[in-house]
Structures are given as structure tokens and as C-alpha cells.
Design a protein around this nucleic acid. Structure first.
Length: 351
DNA sequence: AACTCGGGGAT
DNA sequence: ATCCCAGAGTT
């Protein structure tokens, strides 16, 4: 099968120079793979460099506070990756004496490491013959071999995994895996691929059948739900107040301004009548200073309609929320929705 | 098997 | 607007 040979040849001519390709350190490879899950290389690159600088070894990562890891992860999304990264680092130091595993069987047991990541790290570090199947591989294989099965169906996943294993160059699996993913990322792209420049065009099923635009197939379409978040930016002298999101769901363990979620967008006078409002400002004199224009924050499964109410407390104030100096607010990990607000309305004001 | 978890860039 | 990204965990 000349498929792998052609892909690898293409790779040598077209590959990008990326920092995690210049090492076989399993810690660094693992870190890069976690960062790159569902994340484009261009978006993850600066985070990888930050993490390597702050945490050069798995011991450094294990010794950090979770909040520090989340702060460094801020803005990258899918924060369970950061929590699991930290969790696994601690486990590796305590259970493996700090020696980072590079074999598939051990890697797959780590939190945050699934079939893709275990295959990637073990093939890159040890040349284990484990085929990677990521979004790029689904696209390349479905088009070149004309596989019609949906990539998000159980049968489809199984078939693509088998096919990926069949075409894997068992003598240089690491190189092969890098090559097929890079090929998907740069040449066999989702929209308007330049098939005329493709070295595999003459044997590509999708090209000859004019199915390039419709492959790969996907069956599920995600639906979003609307949520209405009312944040209260409390000012009391040099202080404001934050809370930690501890529930399951989005942004777990990140901080935010005190929040009242409502089922729909409410007029302010309606909001003031909610019992949560009393809990927020109980026994204090306050005034609503500013109500910012609604921000629409789009997530993959949710559309957050966020409003920021700037409250000024007059006189004394007792609260169960976390009291934070305005000057210290940048130390806390926050969702980018909150981070953008802070950047626009607090950080620039206080300096 | 279906759902949930972010944010950004390309089209 | 819609799709997708070097996927994984939970229900």
C-alpha cells in the first residue's frame, strides 16, 4: 500500500516546525497532546510554551496548586483537561516515582488520556504500533478510502480505527501518525481542499466520486440551550467579591462574580424581587451603579446571555462570598467571559 | 448511545 | 450562521 509512503513523503516536504516534535520526552509530548485535544495547533502553541516554562517537569506540575494550573489554562477552554492534567501529574509523581510512562497500556489508565492520546504518546516516544484516530485522520481516511460510515457512530469509530491500523506503517508508526495528522491539517482540509496539489489525488476515492465536500459523514447535530447569567460586580472600597464554581458543569473550579441565573432575561425590577438578591445584599445599603449591555457568549452546547450589574456598597458589608482586592483579581482563574469583562472594566481602570 | 465540556478561527 | 479543531468523561 503506497498510501503511507506518499503521506510520509508529503510530510517531509510540508511539515511545520513545532516544539513538541523536537523531543521524545513523554511528559512534554503528553502535555502537548492534552493541550491539542479539540484545539488547533495555532491556538494551543502559546499555552504549550507557557506550561513548559512554568512546569519544566512533571514534578513541577504536581507541586503546583490546581488554581495555578487553571490560571495558566485560562482561555483555552475544556477546563477538565487542566484539572485532569494536574491530577495525573500528582499520580505519576506519587505512584510512578516521577518517571513518566510512555507505553500505551499505562497511559490509557491516566485521567484525561483516551485512545487517541495514548496512541499518540506511545507511538511518538516509543514507536509503539498504535494508530492515532483524530479529526484529521477521520477526514483523510474517509475521503481517500471512501468510507461512508458516520465518524460519530459506534460502528464508524470501530471501522476507522481498524482502517487506521491497517494502513499504519508498523516500522515507523510515530512518523506515520504525525504525517497523516499533518496531512489532514494542511492538505486534506475540511473546506475547499486544493485537491489539484494533492499527491494522492489520482487514487483518492472521494475525488473520483466527487464526494470530497460531503465526507466525512456525521450523524449528530448538537443543539444549544440558552442561559441567562446575571453577574454582580460589587464594589466596596478597594474590594470586590468572587465565588468559585464548584458544581458539575461548565467552568468547574473557576471563579466568577456572584451570579444569579434566571430562566429568561428579566427586567431589573423583577430581578430585585428574587430571594437570591436579598441573600447577596442582605443588611447593606447599596446602589446599582451601572448595568452593562448584554454579552452573548457562545459555547458548543450553550448560549450564555450575560449581564454585569455594577453595585456600589455604601457603609459596612458582610458577605459569605470571597473578598478580593480589585488589584488582586487577575490572580484568579476565570472563564474568558469574566476575563474579558475584567480587562475592559476593571484592570484598565485600577492602574 | 447520547450528552457534556470552551473558545477561536475559517468559511 | 455553521463547522471544526492532534477527544475524553459521564450518564
Amino acid at each position: 500500500m503506497h498510501f503511507s509512503k506518499e503521506i510520509i513523503n508529503w510530510y517531509h516536504l510540508n511539515k511545520r516546525d513545532l516544539p513538541w516534535r523536537n523531543t521524545r520526552n513523554p511528559y512534554k509530548i503528553w502535555l502537548s497532546e492534552i493541550i491539542l485535544q479539540q484545539t488547533k495547533v495555532i491556538q494551543g502553541l502559546s499555552y504549550y510554551l507557557k506550561f513548559i516554562k512554568h512546569f519544566p517537569t512533571v514534578q513541577d506540575l504536581a507541586q503546583a496548586k490546581e488554581g495555578a494550573v487553571l490560571k495558566l489554562w485560562q482561555g483555552l477552554g475544556y477546563y477538565s483537561r487542566a484539572r485532569n492534567l494536574h491530577y495525573s501529574a500528582i499520580q505519576i509523581v506519587s505512584e510512578f516515582d516521577g518517571k513518566f510512562p510512555a507505553d500505551y497500556a499505562t497511559l490509557i489508565k491516566l485521567k484525561g488520556v483516551g485512545d487517541y492520546t495514548a496512541s499518540a504518546v506511545s507511538s511518538f516516544c516509543l514507536n509503539e504500533a498504535q494508530p492515532v484516530v483524530d479529526g484529521n485522520v477521520y477526514r483523510v481516511l474517509s475521503r481517500y478510502f471512501g468510507v461512508e460510515n458516520a465518524i460519530d457512530s459506534t460502528l464508524g469509530k470501530k471501522k476507522f480505527k481498524t482502517l487506521a491500523n491497517d494502513v499504519l506503517d508498523k516500522k515507523q508508526p510515530g512518523l506515520h501518525n504525525q504525517a497523516i495528522m499533518e496531512f489532514g491539517a494542511l492538505q486534506c482540509v475540511p473546506k475547499n481542499p486544493e485537491c489539484k496539489k494533492c499527491p494522492l489525488v489520482s487514487s483518492c476515492s472521494a475525488y473520483s466520486n466527487s464526494t470530497v465536500t460531503i465526507l466525512p459523514h456525521k450523524q449528530k447535530k448538537i443543539k444549544q440551550r440558552h442561559r441567562y447569567f446575571n453577574y454582580f460586580v460589587i464594589r466596596h472600597g478597594d474590594d470586590t467579591y468572587l465565588e468559585k464554581r464548584t458544581n458539575k458543569g461548565i467552568w468547574e473550579n473557576l471563579f466568577q462574580f456572584p451570579l444569579i441565573e434566571t430562566a429568561e432575561k428579566l427586567a431589573i425590577d423583577k430581578l430585585v424581587r428574587l430571594p437570591e438578591w436579598d441573600a447577596l445584599f442582605n443588611n447593606s445599603t447599596y446602589k446599582i451603579d451601572t448595568v452593562r449591555k448584554e454579552i452573548k457568549h457562545i459555547l458548543s452546547h450553550q448560549i450564555i446571555h450575560a449581564r454585569f450589574f455594577e453595585i456600589i456598597i455604601i457603609g459596612s458589608f458582610e458577605s459569605n462570598y470571597l473578598k478580593v482586592l480589585l488589584d488582586d483579581i487577575d490572580k484568579y482563574p476565570v472563564p474568558i467571559l469574566i476575563g474579558n469583562y475584567i480587562e475592559q472594566h476593571i484592570s484598565s481602570v485600577s492602574v
